Simulated scan of single mutants.
Amino acid sequence: MNLPVKKLRENAVLPTRATVGSAGLDLYACLEQPLTLLPGQLYQVPTGIAVALPEGTVGLLCGRSGLGVKHGITLSNSVGVIDSDYRGELAAGLCNVGDKAYILQPGERFAQLLVVPILLPEPVAAKELPQTQRGEGGFGSTGQAG
């Protein structure tokens, strides 16, 4: 399966997989100069690319675990959702939840794109829902694994 990718800027880098088993495609910061990410601040980082996701899929933008664990750099909305009919530039909202500034370099891998199959059920009103063992038990209702 191919993923059509259009470079919107000259310095954009096409997404890559770090290994053959990598689920996500690494996305690269399309910046003209380094960007200092200050603690507690929010940033929108462009990729310089647009993609044509296959019909029946969704693109999920996720953070890179190394940036999150080592430097506190994460996505500001946890996971970004890219609809299959969107053709604009991919960008990710980042935040620095660490206690030190981090300098994001032009061309640095900063997020990843997962392309995932999606179901599109049609919501319908229901007077009752099918019963389950859990029922209406909410947060913590199933106990802690021992």
Rank of each mutant, 00 (worst) to 15 (best):
L3M: 04
P4K: 04
V5R: 02
K6N: 04
K6Q: 13
K6R: 14
L8H: 05
E10R: 11
A12S: 10
A12W: 01
A12D: 01
V13A: 04
L14I: 05
R17V: 03
R17M: 07
V20H: 14
A23Q: 12
G24P: 02
G24H: 03
L25F: 14
L25K: 01
L25I: 01
Y28I: 00
Y28T: 00
A29F: 01
C30Q: 03
C30I: 04
E32Q: 15
P34I: 07
P34G: 01
P34Q: 11
T36G: 06
T36W: 05
L38T: 09
G40Q: 07
Q41H: 11
Q41V: 10
Q41M: 14
L42S: 12
Q44P: 06
V45L: 05
V45C: 05
T47P: 00
G48L: 04
I49F: 02
A50F: 05
V51H: 04
A52V: 08
A52N: 11
P54L: 10
E55I: 13
G59W: 13
L61K: 09
L61F: 11
C62H: 12
C62F: 09
S65L: 09
S65R: 12
S65E: 10
L67R: 03
G68T: 00
V69D: 07
V69W: 07
K70V: 03
K70G: 02
H71I: 08
I73D: 01
I73Y: 01
I73M: 02
T74S: 14
L75K: 02
L75S: 02
L75W: 08
N77S: 11
V79C: 08
G80N: 09
V81S: 09
V81I: 15
I82S: 03
I82R: 02
D85T: 08
G88Y: 03
E89T: 02
G93T: 08
L94Y: 00
C95G: 02
C95P: 00
G98R: 00
D99W: 04
D99C: 13
K100H: 11
I103E: 15
P106K: 06
G107M: 04
A111Q: 03
L113Y: 04
L114E: 05
V115F: 03
L119G: 06
L120Y: 11
P121D: 09
P121M: 05
P123F: 13
V124K: 15
A126E: 15
K127F: 07
K127H: 13
K127R: 13
E128F: 12
L129P: 05
P130F: 10
T132G: 05
Q133N: 12
R134V: 11
G135Q: 11
G138N: 13
F139G: 09
G140Q: 09
S141G: 10
T142W: 01
G143R: 14
G143H: 14
Q144E: 14
Q144Y: 14
G146D: 15
